[in-house]
Design a protein around this nucleic acid. Structure first.
Lengths: 236, 236, 236, 236
DNA sequence: TATGAATGAGTGTTCATTCAT
DNA sequence: AATGAATGAACACTCATTCAT
């Protein structure tokens, strides 16, 4: 069986290689204008070889999107512990966003891909899609926190947790995907993160139960020393 | 002179025909995959004929976008009167959205086009674009209202009006453009409008000055009799 | 009959107008890239109207070519008088070239058109062409002079007059048509004329009968005062 | 390594196939009206395949032109030896033209391509062209010979070598390119060659130093047995 | 397993020509 | 007589996908 295992490992490595090349190109030049030939050239493979690992361009893209989503979700789950209040969980979730955004480009790739592959999601066809998108995890995680917050009497009981989850995700998606459009040198991580934080905070204030102290919701700010970090992915 | 007038009228009608065909296709299948040949076929014209009315695909698209923007802005301006408080103006602005959204597809087309033509706007390159996009009007209108609200001591003085305007516009854009992706038959105008209303209300609650009564911000709901109306554009 | 005459006169005027517009455009931008729409716009007529006066683009061009040829030939014939030796006639012919080249753009238009319409002529298909090109007149005129020169014992009896005529015409054509490719401001009439004169003189020296004094063949040089004149056609 | 070599050989063969198809079409119907689709059809390939071998139409044409130029220049250089007088070198150069013209169509293709790619050259923009055209070699070779002839006191010191080179090249170009326009069956190689020879001889006589014996310049004639050969390229 | 080669179906755009009015 | 409108056929070029080797 050793030989089969090695085969599978090598196959996985090749897949990862291809996906990483595609990711680099997505960051550089966007999803729309990305062709299979571009990816093949970057990976120093032939176009035909790409099709040995991915049955189509669409599915390659989908896998990239999911892989990035998994990275975030695992990052989040690794830090999640039991016994947290809704507010604490939300703050943790938020901190994970900031971590990922400051330290790697996976979040950007995820949102760019998502907007390309399922632009309407999650505002529509939540149930209709047959594609196994990890996006669902992002969505339910937020939703669960809101539900918990309502149960804990922190959030206005009139809020619709599903809608809040959709809206927050959409906002994050828009802000982050757009920030990816600025050239790397000019992209100001700190600015984006602050923008996101403010929006998030406004949304939370908007759903807090009447009478509670708003300062409960103050979110962690990006530590000063992250300002100059623009992402971990190395460029050749 | 009668003949020249008729000619001009017919020409304008033909332009409108082409733009309407393009709009229908945009609503059906999105902007990205829309080709000049598709439009020509829909309009039952030759591709070359399109070029008699629009010098390029880009300018055809821009004209569609602007025409839709103008429709909204005129609708809004016609209802705008002096002496309104910020909150009243915001409610009016909002009502105009609802009117347009319930009665025609122009808002949808506008937001789809916008996302295609200036995808990062207004989150980036506010000043950088040299294209005379009506989008700017949408943006400044919201911003002005927030500024007025801060001045009137209705909104939290800590808010950044430009950021709020960006965020609101982005939310409207995302929700509406995405709602356009659902098949016509299934699209539930009432659902979308309620969604938008709730989001807007949450955002406003999030920026209201501490201590003010939130019910000040209650927005007009879509009247019951609009529920079954799904848009004025006829489909062949 | 007066009304018919006026009609015909007006028709001729319109034809001339169209041809002049085409000529201007040929001088400016060359023959290859010249479209019927360009001509129509310049003439402030519709494309369809052009077809009332010329059955096709090709025949319009042909007529322009012939008209320019006629201008030169008439210029030459008006100055031709009986009793001239071959050398004298050649010098006269030459002087007419210089006149036309210095004073109007007809020669340029003619050669440009010629190269476009019948690029191989007269090196080939002298007899094969069914198109009534005035080019033939240019050719036979030179040929006749060479024949006369041989008869008068000025030129080497071994020369083939037809071939000399073909070659000279080809040289003039190449030099002049190419000179038209330089931008108007830079075009140095004097340079071109001197170039042509030297080439012509070399050809004549090459065919003079052995033993005759070469200085017989010295050609008139362009008078100094023509240097700054670059053509009579006015530009709007 | 054998497989790579074979691949490269096959690729070169396919390139040659495409170029040869293009050449045939150029000979048949000229450069101006030649489209990529024509070439693809002739080569029994798809249009897209052509782009696997040549990045653009322009570069395909340029390569054809240069390849033909290289053929001539190599033919000439292979025969060039040191210690020749200017007259001898000129005669050799000439003989090489005749060889090529009698035995293959490369000269024709070269001149046709040249007129298409750099129509004014060398009469204008000698220095302005940034395209690495082999044409330059043709030109300087002739110029050098004239300079040498003047130095050796064979040619009239008043001649301008650059101008003579321009003129001769233009003549060759015109005659040969034009001769390519006659239908293959009718094209009389002998006639063209004799024509060229006479013209060349006349030009040389026109610039020989006064007093020298003209018979010095007698050029080699095409051997009788070449008369019926009309070119080596086979037609399907 | 990997790939070079190939291609069909497209893209936006241009233009000489026709025809109803 | 004049023209606005229309178009078919063409153009150079691209790209996701297939297949023989």
């Amino acid at each position: 069986m050793g030989i089969n295992e090695r085969r599978e490992r090598e196959r996985a490595e090749r897949k990862t290689l291809i996906m990483n090349c595609a990711k680099d190109l997505i960051l550089d030049r966007g999803v729309e204008s990305l062709s299979m030939m571009d990816i093949a050239q970057k990976a120093e493979l032939s176009k035909a070889t790409l099709y040995l690992y991915f049955p189509s361009k669409e599915l390659l893209f989908l896998e990239i999107c999911n892989a990035s989503a998994v990275q975030f979700i695992e990052h989040f789950r690794a830090r999640l512990c039991t016994g947290l209040t809704a507010i604490e969980t939300i703050k943790l979730y938020w901190q994970c966003y900031l971590d990922m955004f400051g330290e790697s480009d996976e979040i950007m790739i995820f949102f760019k891909m998502w907007q390309y592959l399922a632009p309407g999601y999650p505002f529509l066809s939540l149930e209709g899609t047959e594609r196994p998108l990890m996006i669902f995890e992002f969505y339910t995680a937020i939703q669960d926190m809101i539900v918990q917050g309502v149960a804990e009497d922190t959030f206005d009981p009139a809020v619709d947790p599903a809608m809040i989850a959709r809206t927050l995700l959409s906002l994050f998606s828009t802000v982050i995907a757009n920030s990816a459009k600025t050239p790397k040198t000019a992209r100001n991580v700190r600015f984006i993160v602050n923008e996101l934080t403010k929006i998030f905070q406004i949304m939370l204030r908007g759903i807090i139960r009447d009478g509670l102290d708003r300062s409960l919701l103050d979110l962690p700010a990006l530590p000063e020393e992250h300002t100059h970090k623009t992402g971990a992915r190395k460029k050749e």
